[in-house]
C-alpha cells in the first residue's frame, strides 16, 4: 500500500524557487502525471520524492512513513530515468538483477525474477548483451525491467519516452499503460508532452514556474482549464485565446463579437475556445476575417486567421478547400467559450 502525500513541499536554491508549496495526495495504485514545460519544477518534485534532491521545506510521506530524511534506497521506490541510467559495464541480465543483488534478496530468487521482469517487457533475446549494443527502445525496456524486478511500492518515471522516436513512443506508451494495469503500483510520471499525460494519467498535475496550476483528470483539465496557462498548454492545437472586453454578456474585440455569454463578467477579459468547437458559418459568423493559411492534416483541415492580433486556428471538415486571403466566416457557440481574467489569467466562466 503506498499512498504518497506531499505537504507544503518547497525547493529553493539560494533565491531561486524550484518548487513552491506543493500539496498533493496520491492514492494507492494511482497513475499520476506531472505535466509542464521544462523548468517548471516537475522533475524536481519527482526527485524530491525519490530522495535525490533535498527538501527545503515541507513533508513527504510514502505509505505511513515520513521519508524526508531517508536515503533513496530506503524509500522502496524504483525509478526510470530519462537517459535510462543503465550500467554500461554490465549485461542486460546483470542490469536487471542489480537491485536484487544490492538489496540482498536471496540468491535463489534472482533468476526467476529477472526472467519474469524481462519477459514482461519482451527482452528475453537480449539478456547477454551490453547496453551499448542495444537500440534506444531496447534500453528503455531494460530500464523498465530493472524498475519492476523489485516490485517496489511506487514507480517514478522521468520523461521515459523523450529519447525515443515518434513511432516507438506510441507503442512504449501503450506498454507502460498495460504494465501499470498488470502491476497495480502507484506510478508518478513526469512529462512535458500533453498527449502522454492525457493518454496515461488517472490524474494530471499541471505545473508552471514551480507552482501547481491545476490538478484533475485529463478530461477535467481539457474541458475546464483553470487558467490561461493550462488552456494554452493542453490540446493540439492549443486553445485560441483572444483579449477583449465583455459587457452585458457580449464579448467584443477587433474582428470578433460573441453574444450570449455570462452576464456576471464585465470589463476586459481573455476569451478562449478550442479549434474543434468552431465551425464555418453560412451567413454571418462571430469572426469574419481573411484566411491566413490552410493546412491539410488528412483527417481535418486547419484554417487560421488573424483576430485581434492573434493567430486563431479553426478545425474544419477535411474536404474544405479555400485560398489564402479569401474571407471566412466562423461560428463560435457561446457554450464552448471559456472566459479568463485578463490580468491573472484565472478562469471566470
Amino acid at each position: 500500500m503506498a499512498q504518497i502525500r506531499l505537504k507544503n513541499v518547497s525547493k529553493r536554491w539560494n533565491n531561486f524557487v524550484g518548487v513552491d508549496n506543493f500539496n498533493l495526495d496520491i492514492a494507492d495504485q494511482e497513475f499520476l502525471v506531472l505535466l509542464g514545460p521544462s523548468g517548471c519544477g516537475k522533475t524536481t518534485t519527482m526527485r524530491m520524492i525519490a530522495g535525490l534532491e533535498e527538501i527545503t521545506e515541507g513533508e513527504i510521506w510514502i505509505g505511513d512513513r515520513l521519508v524526508n530524511k531517508l536515503e533513496p534506497k530506503d524509500r522502496d521506490i524504483s525509478m526510470v530515468f530519462q537517459s535510462y541510467g543503465l550500467y554500461p559495464n554490465m549485461t542486460v541480465y546483470e542490469n536487471i538483477r542489480f537491485p536484487l543483488k544490492v538489496r540482498k534478496v536471496p540468491q535463489e530468487q534472482h533468476h526467476e525474477r529477472v526472467m519474469a521482469a524481462s519477459k514482461m517487457v519482451e527482452l528475453d533475446d537480449f539478456l547477454q548483451r551490453r547496453p551499448a549494443a542495444l537500440s534506444g527502445g531496447q534500453r528503455q525496456r531494460v530500464a523498465l525491467a530493472r524498475a519492476i524486478v523489485r516490485e517496489p511500492n511506487a514507480f517514478l518515471m522521468d520523461e521515459p519516452l523523450s529519447n525515443l522516436d515518434a513511432k516507438l513512443r506510441v507503442s512504449t506508451r501503450a506498454q507502460i499503460k498495460n504494465l501499470h494495469h498488470t502491476l497495480k503500483r502507484t506510478t508518478i510520471y513526469v512529462t512535458h508532452d500533453q498527449i502522454e499525460a492525457m493518454t496515461l494519467a488517472d490524474r494530471v498535475v499541471v505545473m508552471s514556474k514551480g507552482l501547481v496550476q491545476q490538478v484533475g483528470t485529463p478530461m477535467e483539465i481539457y474541458d475546464r482549464p483553470a487558467n490561461t496557462f493550462v488552456a494554452s498548454f493542453i490540446g493540439s492545437p492549443a486553445m485560441n485565446l483572444i483579449k477583449g472586453s465583455i459587457e452585458g454578456g457580449v464579448f467584443t474585440s477587433e474582428g470578433i463579437r460573441i453574444e450570449g455569454l455570462t452576464l456576471a463578467a464585465k470589463g476586459p477579459v481573455t476569451l478562449g475556445f478550442r479549434a474543434e468547437d468552431a465551425s464555418l458559418a453560412q451567413a454571418s459568423g462571430q469572426i469574419e476575417a481573411p484566411i491566413y493559411t490552410v493546412e491539410l492534416l488528412g483527417d481535418a483541415t486547419m484554417l487560421s486567421m488573424r483576430v485581434a492580433g492573434e493567430l486563431v486556428s479553426i478545425k474544419v471538415n477535411k474536404d474544405y478547400r479555400a485560398e489564402i486571403g479569401e474571407l471566412a466566416r466562423v461560428a463560435i457557440p457561446a457554450s464552448a467559450c471559456h472566459l479568463f481574467d485578463h490580468s491573472t489569467g484565472a478562469r471566470i466562466a
Binding site: 535510462y84 541510467g85 544490492v102
Partner: peptide
C-alpha cells in the same frame, strides 16, 4: 559520467559509497 548512473544505483538500493 552521467549523474543518472549514480542516481539509478541509489534508487536501486545502493548507498552513496556503494
Amino acid at each position: 559520467i552521467p549523474k543518472d548512473l549514480d542516481e539509478s544505483a541509489m534508487v536501486d538500493g545502493c548507498t552513496r559509497f556503494q
